[in-house]
């Protein structure tokens, strides 16, 4: 168990290091970060001075080392637009993103698990067909279009729910549904196929044969065995929701990390972009690490 954890931790560290390399290179893609960071009307001398001050003339390795040391302490430099530390700006927006991703995940779990189970148990009935069609549509619908259509129906036409900003529960509903639909659809299909596979196993037949009622067979014998892949995907999807909220946040003017980064990209405020990419990716790695640890408890066979 300890060895497994140590190995996973080491792997996670390697991944975070890799993430830092890519985040570092975002600024160096065009070859000259000074031109990216300075306003277009900067004079040649300003550019030269800026390069010296920022150390852009140093070898890559030296620059990367400096970046990495900063990143380790959460220092990504100052935001060019807001004049505040880039990481602080990103961290301030994190609760909003977590709230949105959490709500989307909650919707996905509450809808997908029951629907997937019912659809597996009542296979080839109208219930199954309806949920399969919904899942297919959900997986094919682009987030931004769904968001706009929800605004059109619930905000513009019916005037029921607010279309932008963050506030109480009413503000959360439309963005959470928008962000959560794809995950819901994916987990619904996965739960269905997982349950179908488990329900076909010998031990389920044995349980039924020895006279166990149908509901404990499904909820205890089957669901527990189908849970491992579902938990894994839930973890991966949570990470995806954190990063995927970029578009949903833009549509609903939700003040989270995603919207901040899109604005930062438009404003060429790259320290903020780097901090956001780094923070979201690291969060994804940590969530996955926790999921791995979680399912060693669900499935003791993995602890090797």
């Amino acid at each position: 168990m300890k060895r497994f954890l140590a190995r996973r931790l080491a792997q996670a560290l390697v991944v975070v290091l890799g993430v830092s390399v890519v985040a570092f290179f975002i600024l160096h893609l065009t070859g000259d970060p000074a031109l990216l960071l300075l306003p277009p009307d900067a004079t040649a001398e300003e550019i030269r001075n800026f390069r010296d001050a920022m150390g852009f003339n140093d070898p890559f390795v030296v620059q990367y080392w400096r970046f990495l040391r900063g990143a380790a302490t959460g220092n990504f430099g100052e935001s060019l637009r807001h004049g505040a530390p880039a990481m602080r700006l990103v961290v301030e927006r994190l609760p909003a993103t977590l709230e949105l991703a959490g709500a989307a995940m909650a919707i996905a779990l509450c809808v997908a698990l029951p629907a997937g189970i019912v659809s597996a148990v009542r296979r080839n009935t109208p219930v199954d067909y309806v949920s399969t069609v919904v899942a297919l549509l959900g997986q094919s619908m682009p987030t931004f279009w769904l968001g706009i259509m929800l605004i059109l129906i619930f905000s513009v036409r019916l005037n029921l729910l607010p279309s932008s900003g963050r506030g109480g529960l009413p503000h959360l509903i439309l963005p959470a549904v928008t962000l959560g639909l794809f995950t819901t659809a994916r987990m619904m299909r996965l739960t269905r196929s997982g349950m179908l596979e488990v329900l076909g196993q010998d031990y389920i037949r044995t349980a039924r044969a020895k006279g166990v009622n149908e509901s404990p067979v499904i909820w205890k014998h089957a669901l527990r065995n189908a849970a491992v892949p579902i938990v894994t995907i839930a973890g991966i999807e949570l990470g995806a929701l954190l990063g995927g909220s970029v578009i949903t946040e833009t549509i609903f003017a939700w003040p989270g990390v995603g919207r901040l980064s899109v604005q930062a990209i438009y404003n060429r405020d790259y320290p903020v972009v780097q901090a956001a990419v780094f923070l979201l990716s690291t969060t994804f790695v940590v969530v996955n690490l926790l999921v791995d640890v979680a399912y060693t408890y669900l499935d003791p066979r993995i602890r090797t």
Binding site: V15, V16, G18, V22, G243, G258, V273
Partner: peptide, 23 residues
């Protein structure tokens, strides 16, 4: 496989818009 993990760790859309924003 580690490279794959690193690639997967990135919020795809964010990375894509960051890179296209620069290029």
């Amino acid at each position: 496989m580690r490279l794959a993990d690193i690639q997967l760790a990135f919020p795809f859309i964010l990375l894509a818009i960051a890179v296209i924003g620069v290029l």
